[in-house]
Design a protein around this nucleic acid. Structure first.
Lengths: 150, 150
DNA sequence: TATTGTTATACTCTATAACTATA
DNA sequence: TATAGTTATAGAGTATAACAATA
C-alpha cells in the first residue's frame, strides 16, 4: 500500500490540519468541561443564556441553529432555563407560531457572575502564554467562529 | 457598579480571550459533532481508537488521563471498542494489575477509512482558508493541545 | 402545505460509589 | 495501604418520531 503523500508539514495544507485540529478542539472541549464541572449551571445551558444576554432575544429555532442542536433538544434546555427563572417565553406579536426567548435580569446577573468566576482555570492557562501566543489564539478564535458558523 | 477595565481588545490580554475562546471552541466542537453524526463509531470511541492507533498501546489509566474522563467512563468506552473487535485487552507481564489496550488491525483499518471519509466537511472549510490562515490554525493547534494537556 | 414549537421517548457519554485483584 | 481496573447505577445532553398550532 502506498503511503499518503505528505510533503508539507507546517499546516499550510488542509490535509495535515483536519484530524489534528479536530482532535485538539475535542480534547480542549473535554478539558474545559472537566474544569467547569461543578458549577451552578451546565455548559449547554450557559452557552444559550450567554447568547441571549449578549445578543438579545431569539426564537427557539434561532437558538437551535446557533448551537447546532435540534429544536426539541434546545426546547429542553430552554425549559430548564425558564424553570430556573433565567429566561422568559414571550409570544411574537407578528407571528403566533413563534416564541421569543428573553433573558431575565436574574439570568443576566448569573452570566455576569459566572464570567467572573468560571474561567479561572482557562484564564490561568492563557496568562501563562506569551503575548504573541495570545494574539495568535485571538486570531484563531475568529477563524474558529467563522468555521463553526459556515 | 464599575465597568471592568478593558483597555486592550486585540486579544493580547488574557481577560479578553477566555470566554470568547472558550465559546468558540465549544461551538466548533458541537458543529463538528453535528457534522459527523451518522458515522459508524461515536466521537469518544473514535478519539480513543485513533490515539491507540497513532501512539501505540496504552493502559486504561493512561487513556482516561489523556481524554480527561474518569477511569470507569473510559472503561465503558473500551468495553465497546473491545466488543466490536477494534481493540484487544492484554495483560501486563510486569504488573498483574494493569491491562494494556491495543488496537487490532481491524481497528487501525477503521481509523484509516474514517479519516478518509469523516473530515470531509472540516476539510472543505479548511481548504477555503488562505495559506496564512491555515498556518495560523496549525500554530494554534499546538497551543490548544498544550492547554488541554496542562 | 410548510413552518414553529412541543411532548414522549430512547440513546450516548460521563460521573460517583463500591468492589476485586495485585503491588 | 495504595493502585489498576471493573461493575452497577444515575444524571446530563442530545436525537428521532409524532403531534398541535399557526402561516
Amino acid at each position: 500500500m502506498q503511503r499518503a503523500p505528505r510533503p508539507v508539514v507546517d499546516g499550510s495544507s488542509a490535509g495535515e490540519l483536519d484530524s489534528d485540529f479536530s482532535t485538539a478542539v475535542t480534547r480542549l472541549y473535554r478539558r474545559l468541561r472537566a474544569e467547569k464541572a461543578d458549577d451552578q449551571i451546565g455548559d449547554s445551558h450557559r452557552a444559550v443564556l450567554a447568547h441571549l444576554v449578549k445578543d438579545g432575544p431569539r426564537t427557539l429555532r434561532e437558538l437551535s441553529d446557533h448551537e447546532h442542536v435540534t429544536p426539541p433538544s434546545m426546547n429542553q434546555t430552554v425549559n430548564a432555563l425558564a424553570e430556573w427563572g433565567f429566561v422568559e417565553r414571550r409570544g411574537d406579536p407578528d407571528d403566533g407560531r413563534k416564541v421569543i426567548l428573553v433573558a431575565t435580569p436574574i439570568g443576566a446577573a448569573l452570566i455576569a457572575e459566572t464570567r467572573r468566576r468560571r474561567y479561572a482555570w482557562l484564564n490561568a492557562q492563557l496568562e501563562a502564554l506569551s503575548v504573541s501566543e495570545r494574539r495568535l489564539l485571538s486570531a484563531a478564535t475568529g477563524i474558529i467562529n467563522r468555521i463553526a458558523d459556515s
